[in-house]
């Protein structure tokens, strides 16, 4: 196994995923297999090759600085699980 239980838990924490115990065990196995599989890449000779982040070799287009979006809060908040006075609610955040 290229990944152990603790590593999988650490990744799940970083990704904010709560795993059931059986999911956790299965992921140790399957993620290890995936990681072993993508390890094939290490064989490629990429000396001096520029990483390609995007299929397009063009520059970013820019938009004009104009306000185009009206207030549609109520409509946008119809999908929100918990809202009060226009605010999205989450469990108290303490800094």
């Amino acid at each position: 196994m290229s990944l152990d239980k603790d590593q999988v838990q650490q990744i799940a924490t970083l990704a904010r995923l709560k795993l059931k115990p059986e999911e956790h065990a299965e992921l140790v196995d399957k993620l290890s297999r995936i990681v072993d599989f993508v390890d094939h890449l290490s064989a490629a000779d990429t000396e001096g090759v520029i990483p390609m982040a995007h299929p397009l070799d063009v520059a970013q287009r820019l938009r004009q600085d104009v306000v185009t979006e009206p207030n549609e809060r109520d409509r946008y908040q119809e999908n929100a699980p918990s809202v009060t006075e226009g605010l999205y609610l989450v469990p108290k955040v303490i800094e």
Partner: peptide, 13 residues
Amino acid sequence: SIHEGLDRSSGID
């Protein structure tokens, strides 16, 4: 995040 006036929640603006 707004904490005042909201009981056990924080409000997000």
